[in-house]
Structure formats: C-alpha cells, structure tokens
Design a protein around this nucleic acid. Structure first.
Lengths: 336, 336
DNA sequence: CTGTTAGCGCTTTCAA
DNA sequence: TTGAAAGCGCTAACAG
C-alpha cells in the first residue's frame, strides 16, 4: 500500500496539533468555527508538515472530483484547441480542471475512451465525436452528465452545442454565387465526420434552390496536406470557386494551387470554414465562415455545470457561423 | 455521502454473483486463477449491472491515479498545443491521461496552480513556467515527479528538456549576417519570459562576436497582435532585418509591415521562431528556427514515466533548433 | 465547540 | 482457490 511519498496525512497533522482529524478537516475547508487559536495552530502544523489533503481521498469521500473530461478527435487541430482553451478557462474559474484525451490514435475505440475518462471525472464533453449515431446514443446514458459539441444528440435529451454547418456553407456558396460563380467544387472532409455530411447537405440545398448552379465534389480531408493534395483535383473540375471543408484544407489548397500556377482568386476563388486565427494571415486572406470556438467551450461549460448541479441547462444552441469576406474570393475572371 | 448515480459497486456485484468482493476485484484485474466458471459468472454479472470500478477508489487504494498534470502559460499558443498533443499521445499509449491547466488567467498564482493540479495526479510537467527561479526551486521538491520543459531546473536535479534558444536565434542572426545584413532588430518577447532572456543572450553573443553587426531591440510580445503593433517601431530602427520572438509575432510583423507598405524581404527580412505549422504558409513563407514541439512532449513523457517508475530518466536534452530557410529572408536591397 | 465513528469503493495480505 | 478484514485519507453524522 504505497503511501504518497513525502505527503503528510490528516491523521499526522491532527496528532501533531493535538486535535482530531475532524478538526483538521474543518480547518482546511474553512468550516471551522471554534477557537481561532486552535485553527491557527492547525494551520501552522499543516504548513510545517507541508500537508495538503489527498485529492483522491476527498473525491472518494465526497463523491466528486472537480474535474471534467474532454474528448476531441484531434488535439492538433487549431479549431478544437480553441474550444479546449475556452472550456478550460471557464471551468477553471469554477474550480474545475479538465482532462483531455485525443481519439485520433484509434478512432474506433472512441466510445471506450469516453467511458474510461468519464469514470475519472464528474462529467464529460464530447467534441465532434466520430462515432456513429448508434454508438453515441448507446453510451450517452452512461456518460452523463454530458454535453455534446458539434453533434446533435441523436434525438436524446443531452445538451448540445452546434454550429450550423449547413447554413454556414450555404452562405459561403451564396456569396460565391453572388460574385458570379456558377460552378463550384467542394473539397470534402473526412468520411466519418458528421459535420462533413452537414456541409454536403447545405450544398445540396443550395444547388437545388439555385438554378444554374452546380457543385462538384472532390476528395479532401481535414488537414493542410489534404488541401495541398486536393489542388490538382480541384483544378481538373474546371470550377471557378472551391469550398474547402475547413480552413486547414483551404490553406493547403491555396498553396497547392499556387504551386500549380493557379492564381487565387483570379482564376479560382477559395473559401474555408472555422476562421482559425491564421485565416486572416494567409495570402490572400481567407474568406471563411467564422465560428466562435472559444465560446463553444464556454457555453459547454455553462451547461455542464448546470447539469452537474442538477439544474436545468440552458437550451441547446445552434451557433450561426458568420461569413467573413476577405480576399480569397472575387468575381470570376471572365465574368460579365 | 452521495453515491455516484447509477454506478454499481463491487459489493453489489459480489453479492449478485455470490462471491466475495475480493474475487470480483481479482476477476476485474485479471488476477483471478480459480474456476473459470466463477470468473465467467462474475463478468456476466458485472456486465449486467454495467459495473465499472470507481477510479478514485482504486486511486486511493493503489496510491496512483494514472494521470499527469500539464501546465502551460497559454493554451492558445500553437507551440504549446503541439507539445500537449505529443505529450497526451505518448502518455495515452502507456495508459496515462493528462490534466491540463493554463496559467494565463493569473500568472502570479502559477505555483499554487501547479501544486493544486499536482495533487490530483501522479506527476506533473511544467511547460515554460513564468514563475521566478526562486519560486520554481522552492516548489520543485513538492512537485516531484516533475519534468520541466523550456526551463532549466535552476541547478536542481529535475529532469528537463530545453530548446537552445540562444543558439537558435544566434544561427538566425548569422544567417541574416551572411546574407549581408548588418543592422538587425530584435522584437522582444514578454518581459517575464525566461526564453526571451535566452534569445537576448544569444543576440548579445552574436553582436559581440561579429564585428560590424548591430542589434537593436524593440518591445514586442508573444502574439500576432504584438507583432502588428511592433511594425512601426521596427521600421523606425532602420534595420534591414528583424528577428521576432516567435512565429506568431513574426506573422503579425509580416502583416504589419505590409500594411505600412514595407516589402518583405525586399526592404526588411523577417525571421520567426518555433516553426509552427503555419510558418510554411505565410507570405512570404517564414524563415524560422524549427523546434520539434511534439517531440518535446514525447520526450517529456519518457522521462516522467521513468521517474514515476523509480527508474533513472534519460539525461536532459537540449534540442537544437534547426534553421529553416524560407523566403522571408533575403539579401538587403542595396547590398553589394 | 470538538471528537468519535462510520463509511466512500477498492485492493490485498492473511487465513482457511 | 476463495473469503474476511484491514486500510488507503478524508468527510460528515452524531454525540458529548
């Protein structure tokens, strides 16, 4: 039974201070009401022994850990990092810490991973889970308190925060259309990504509702490399504008196109999605659908805390991306 | 004494299976050697009750949590995110999770924060701590197992991983010098940043050892906005090349300069530091000192695990940044 | 106002 | 091979 090296226990402090463990506990938690001199003595002894309460013992006794789990499909993606950053700060203000886990290593075990990390914490937030709807609704119950980001709860009663990808990409397409583009190409996201489906839906809607407009699709991915690789495919379509799955892909595409000698936006307009901090700094600056990622984290925490406290969380939010027009989009070269 | 909602306990499983808790424990931990039928029954009951061992109870009994803490000064910085990503993946492979905390909210309480999160975990890694050397060596003892990233242990015996900022920035300066630049300007990092001091030292060394070279310093910071703000100051110095504290600042500077109508690299060469994923994609692509951030995370984990296991960690590492020459640096316009 | 006592849920000697 | 029992360190009724 390994004792934490060097850590004093409450019993030792109690003995050294000549009081009971209960008293020490009360002093340490500011629940002490007796003689201030006693409290002072306890504190002195505690400091002397550099005592600090064992967190897991407290967790066990209290039934809570003051920590939440956060699962993302890829910690290397700036968009998810921004969510994490917002979440971690918000939770921190309420004294909660966050345990992160990245399911990129084995996506298939996402449900197991979620279960595992959930057990160490008081609650969990799943960000853009890649797992299927079935898997999700199957484990949702055992994960609560739970909040979902970027994924609706498949009809469940789990609080969720979403981005309206459908509307966002549609707005982007409409912006392009208003510029005079008629043939667009969509550089797809990862196959398993649910948000890719939403974007596709939005584009189909746009195509259906916009006579004369056409949207081709080419394989892509979620990274800059995927964007670079997609450049030749994009050019082949002959489209005058390309909508990338996200900013990373768009940035890759921008560069891939330049390497191919294709000018942006003169020959092809390009749009991204997310508005990561660097989108402003690409050349040309990227037109994109701006998503308030840190706020996603903040809002998620707000709801999670409510559920943890047994209160009613605020209603689900579907954030509308805001089209940020920069210079990677322009009228097609030979228009009008 | 709140019971975790819906979670079955080992005692319940034991009763339902008609065995003792000890047996259940053994079965759950693959330490069971008796009748396979019994094991099977226990497993069935456990599954039926959807029992999963309480992590904190195990932690208490075992004296370990299988989690490590990670503290960064700013979770929003891509460089730190890369470290986190590497660390989290490496630790995950050994069954450890990471608890992150960002000290940006109140930098002064970094030592307290470190202590707090350390108590919930088995070990901690401090990444580029902003605290003073005194504070650091004062609490280092109470934090062990500990590994330091981007900060030497002020003479202590704590394993640490560092980047040779001195050498890195010096190489950058030499690259600039070899191109023909004689008057350089350094856009400083945050005042409290220790790594800013190293860079300054490197530059002083360079200046001392390079007759005819001069390095001016202007205020900067650590973000793109700081870089933008520094642009006028940089121009005023009349230097033909600017070394930015990091890539973020360099990117801001690049854009600030463009806004001022200054051409890069024609009029002023610019270098960054870190080689974040976007450095390749700026215009012009950024010459920078490349730091293998994810590897920093991986290496940190390797050492931390050794210390956790009571083994000797591998020796400290001082990673040499590698100068990545791209097109933001060139010969000065009127040279030769 | 303070101490005693009984858990929290799990692991692990020690006996049987 | 299995079970009983003690204990990890802390908290919270309940007494006194």
């Amino acid at each position: 039974m390994a004792r934490r090296s060097g850590a004093a226990t409450i019993a030792e402090v109690a003995k050294a201070a000549g009081v009971s463990p209960a008293t020490v506990s009360r002093v340490m938690n500011d629940r002490f009401v007796g003689d201030p001199a006693v409290a002072e003595r306890v504190r002195a002894v505690a400091a002397d022994l550099s005592y600090s309460p064992s967190h897991f013992a407290r967790s066990l006794a209290l039934g809570q850990t003051k920590a939440i789990a956060f699962i993302v499909p890829d910690l290397a993606n700036p968009a998810f990092q921004a969510v994490l950053s917002g979440l971690s700060k918000a939770a921190g203000r309420d004294g909660y810490r966050v345990l992160v886990a990245d399911s990129s290593e084995n996506p298939d075990e996402e449900p197991l991973l979620a279960r595992e990390v959930r057990r160490r914490c008081d609650a969990i937030v799943l960000c853009a889970p890649r797992m299927s709807d079935e898997e999700l609704s199957e484990i949702a119950g055992s994960l609560e308190p739970l909040v979902l980001i970027n994924r609706t709860g498949s009809g469940d009663a789990v609080p969720s925060l979403a981005i309206d990808y459908r509307a966002g990409i549609r707005s982007l397409a409409e912006h392009l259309h208003s510029l005079g583009h008629r043939h667009l190409v969509y550089v797809e996201g990862p196959e398993r990504s649910v948000s890719n489906r939403y974007r596709r839906d939005g584009l189909e809607e746009f195509e259906r509702d916009t006579p004369g407009a056409r949207v081709t699709r080419v394989a892509g991915g979620a990274t800059t490399d995927d964007g670079i690789a997609a450049a030749p495919r994009v050019r082949e379509t002959g489209a005058t504008a390309a909508l990338a799955f996200n900013d990373l892909v768009a940035i890759g595409l921008l560069n891939g196109l330049v390497d191919l000698g294709v000018e942006v936006p003169a020959e092809i307009s390009v749009t991204g999605f997310d508005d990561i901090p660097f989108a402003r700094f690409t050349t040309p600056p990227l037109t994109t659908a701006s998503v308030p990622h840190p706020e996603l984290g903040t809002q998620a925490w707000q709801r999670l805390l409510a559920v943890i406290r047994g209160e009613d969380p605020e209603p689900d939010l579907v954030l509308q991306p805001h089209v940020e027009i920069r210079s990677s989009t322009a009228r097609p070269e030979h228009s009008a």
